[in-house]
């Protein structure tokens, strides 16, 4: 059972990190009604910023131009700010043009793909496709020496969950504050909000930046845990995974995000790893697992289309 706990800890750490991304996306999509299918842009910006700020000067086999050797915590926070700028920079022109949610989704998706491709083909930014390795190795080896892999995983889990809880609390406060109420009002009817004198674009861009900040912080923690960054960490599949979790859990409800992540990344994804197998189907088992997962996803959406924990709409006084 001890072994199972160590595995559960790994899964919990991944869930906490992607949970932070989910909270950021929920601020943008759940509250703001702004679809961010390219949420991996902010996540990746956080990963790459943290990497280039923590690694040392390039070695003989490296192609990247610069490494700043900053402390990890500072690099992660910088990653958050860069991510927030990247996310807002991608979305702002589209928000200004007033595109629909689906088109904003496409614009963000395109932005993330452009960023990923450029990082992949330009060796001089961060080694291109092969990526940069050994990120945060000092911290990791300190942890390995003082308690091994499980201790290291536990530390990262505690950091990630502390950030998750902080992000959760901040976003709850923000949701209830006047700012959050205006953002939701814009989601429901942006024309009406504009008539009330709110600067719709400003609120939307700020929401995007706030969401982007959290996805960037998550990226920073993730890259240190992995110890490596490649452009493949920014594949569209990662964005989709987060969007599925948010919509399945319940858009607009932070508890829903938590449940969505636990259900998709935890129960369904890992549960499918434990499906029974026999020799006849062993070779196609990985595909059957994905099919079982997809079927479960469709069933949940079929019977809970509003998400497992839908948004609690404020009661209107009649």
């Amino acid at each position: 059972m001890e072994g199972f706990l160590a595995f559960a800890l790994t899964v919990a750490t991944i869930s906490a990190i992607f949970g932070i991304v989910g909270l950021g996306v929920n601020a943008q999509w759940g509250y703001g009604g702004m679809l961010n299918i390219g949420n991996v842009a902010g996540f990746g910006a956080g990963m790459y910023t943290t990497t280039l700020l923590t690694v040392g000067a390039p070695g003989e086999r490296d192609f990247y131009a610069y490494g700043a050797s900053l402390p990890l915590w500072l690099a992660i926070i910088c990653g958050g700010f860069v991510a927030s700028i990247v996310a807002a920079a991608i979305a702002t022109p589209a928000l200004k043009a007033g595109v629909s949610a689906l088109r904003l989704g496409l614009v963000t998706f395109a932005g993330a793909e452009i960023l990923r491709t450029v990082l992949a083909v330009r060796l001089d930014i961060a080694n291109g496709f092969p990526g940069v390795h050994g990120v945060g190795s000092g911290f990791r080896h300190w942890a390995f020496d003082n308690g091994g892999q499980d201790f290291y995983d536990l530390l990262i889990f505690l950091i990630a969950s502390a950030v998750f809880i902080t992000a959760f609390a901040l976003l709850e406060i923000w949701r209830r504050a006047p700012f959050g109420r205006v953002v939701r009002a814009i989601r429901e009817d942006s024309d009406a909000a504009a008539m009330l004198g709110h600067n719709v674009l400003k609120f939307q861009v700020q929401t995007f930046a706030i969401g982007g900040f959290f996805t960037g912080i998550a990226g920073g923690i993730y890259v240190i845990w992995l110890g490596t960054v490649t452009p493949d960490n920014m594949l569209p599949a990662v964005s989709f995974m987060v969007m599925i979790a948010v919509i399945l859990g319940g858009s607009g409800n932070n508890w829903g995000v938590l449940f969505g992540i636990i259900i998709t990344l935890g129960l369904l994804e890992q549960g499918s790893r434990f499906l029974p197998t026999t020799d006849d189907i062993r070779e196609i088992m990985p595909y059957l697992r994905r099919m079982a997962l997809a079927a479960a996803l469709i069933l949940v959406l079929r019977f809970r289309p509003q998400g497992v924990l839908p948004e609690q709409r404020s009661v209107t006084v009649k």
């Binding site: 072994g3 160590a6 991944i14 994804e269």
Partner: peptide
Amino acid sequence: REDTRSLSEGAIEGASKLIN
């Protein structure tokens, strides 16, 4: 046979399951 799903997160989960 554990699946990485062509992603880092899948690789970590798979490695952790195989090891632990």
